[in-house]
Simulated assay, not measured.
Amino acid sequence: MNKTKKEIIITLLLNIALPYAIYQLLISHTSSLTALSAAALVPLCDTLYSLIKTRKADVFSGFIFLGLILGVVAVLLGGDERFILLRESYVTGIMGLLFLVSLFWARPLIYYFAERFTGHDPQMNEKWERLPNYRRTFRLMTAVWGVSLLLEACVKVALVYSLSIPTFLAISPFATYGIIALTIWWNISYVRRVKREAAARF
């Protein structure tokens, strides 16, 4: 297994799989607040480790940590039954806005995610500096993910206030997973097409 694959697996385990497992293990024995707080410790520790090791903030781990903290805030806010059903979508919507706001940064969020998965490959910085198409690729992917996350949140808000709660619970997972699955499919297809075009040029 090469270094890049190891980086991807470790990153996904530490920032997605492990926090999710901790949350699922604790949620039946404690409150949502405690379970989310415990899950948030993993990406926080990963971010601190990366900061100490590379002296550079780990944007991906920080992004996951922020999402979990927003989940904690949503739990603390409470609210009626419909608001509680939408807690995850409010967080998703904020994450989507953050993707779109990052388009105005020197480098958008997707760039930092890719950098984390490739083990901070120095060639990425070189390509970013000299290849306009490379920059355009990352900005487009960031924009698509931002719009998709916002769309998921808006669709679920519309559904929860137009359907009965049992109907919403039955339908909303299809909306969520359908939008995310389509975005992942587009992302994979787009990256493959970009790589084919780059290979054809050289």
Rank of each mutant, 00 (worst) to 15 (best):
P166A: 12
L163F: 04
V160I: 10
S162C: 02
L151W: 01
I165W: 04
R135C: 00
S148G: 11
A181L: 03
L151N: 10
G146E: 08
R135A: 00
T176H: 13
L150E: 07
L159Q: 10
V147L: 02
L159H: 09
Y161D: 03
L159W: 05
T137M: 11
C154G: 14
T137L: 09
L182H: 08
A175F: 00
L169N: 15
G146M: 00
L151A: 15
A153W: 00
A158V: 06
V155S: 14
V160H: 11
L182Q: 13
L163W: 05
P166G: 14
A143D: 04
I171E: 12
A158R: 10
A170I: 00
L149G: 15
R139N: 12
Y177W: 06
V160C: 14
L150W: 01
P166E: 11
T183C: 07
V157P: 10
V157A: 13
A181C: 07
V144C: 13
F138N: 12
T142C: 03
A181Q: 05
L150K: 07
E152V: 07
L169Q: 15
A143K: 09
T183Y: 01
C154F: 14
L140Q: 09
I180V: 10
P166Q: 14
L159C: 11
G146W: 01
V155E: 10
L140N: 06
F168C: 03
P166W: 08
G178D: 06
R139V: 04
T176K: 13
A170S: 05
Y177Q: 11
L163C: 04
L169K: 15
F174R: 14
E152R: 06
T183G: 02
